[in-house]
Amino acid sequence: MPAPAHPFVSRSGGARRLEPVVFGISRAAAYLILVCGAAVFLDIVVKGGATVFQTRAPFVNVAFLSEAPESLYVFEWEGRQMRLGDREYRAFKQAHPAAAAVPAESYVYSSGGIFPCIVGTLLLVVGSMSIALFLGVCAAIYLNEYARDGRFIRCVRLAIINLAGVPSIVFGLFGFGMFVIFFGWNVSLLAGWFTLAFMVLPVVITASEEALKAVPIGFRVGSLALGATKWQTIWRNVLPYALPGILTSSILGIARVAGETAPIMFTAAYVVRDQLPWQVERAMDGLFEGVMALPYHIYVVSSKIPQNEFTERVQYGTAFVFLALVALIATTSIVLRNRLRARYKW
């Protein structure tokens, strides 16, 4: 073998040939994700946008956002195809008694709007996140500030990690057995709150612990050395500085709580409910009644009713509103988080 001209002469070898292959595969994977994400997003925005927006003022389909779902009635009348929602159809029959004799096709949930679902999802998110944050932050404070490391604490940590890996349908079953049956809350907002709260609790606890750990130890000893009790120290000098971090990670929990269908399927979601949660005799009754919810509504209109040209409008419209709502809640939380962070920066 002739001696190379210089010590840096290029050589070929397995490791070198592999380099462009790995580069190519990893880049392709990244692009593929982008393409998939864009496809899903565009599909929903384009088709759903057609339901939610309109070309005439006020440009937003107010009825879709503010009314309850109705059945759609389609029939021939004086040579034209009529498409009327439930109430319109009844009014029409009153005005034209002859219409009662005309055969009409009915399509459930294909008319009207999704207002009760929006309300239900909002209530579920706010309630369950409040419960999860309260329980999660308390637990994290105990684990990080009070408990001394030992076998018991290791068991608790292990339990939390395992809880995080439990599939959401199992939480649904747990909630059904525990809250719906055993506590006798029936399928209700309250049962949904606690089921969803338990589902995100591991995330909230872990996030809160991380955030508490990130607060410098000097804040604690400095406070204790001034004669603060442990709780005074935590409340005044640790928790405020951990809060932005706690919220940051909990924002991910919001999307999960809003989006999961399985946990609320047997615990909180009604296929249809005529009254809104506050349209009850006594204020507390609302807690013990189920609600409609966006993800469950999507599930129902996509798989529980006959599919036809009229259902797509609701399916995509609901999906679009759902995405927009989650984005809105997340944005609100981020803004709140940023304000807290600006106030308690260190």
């Binding site: 410098p216 000097g218 804040f219 000893v221 400095g222 406070s223 050395a225 001034l226 000098n237 500085y241 308690y344 920066k345 260190w346």
Partner: peptide, 12 residues
């Protein structure tokens, strides 16, 4: 019995 620490720790 107050204490001043090696690493100054003003609160934010």
């Amino acid at each position: 019995v107050g204490m001043v620490f090696q690493k100054s720790n003003p609160f934010p």
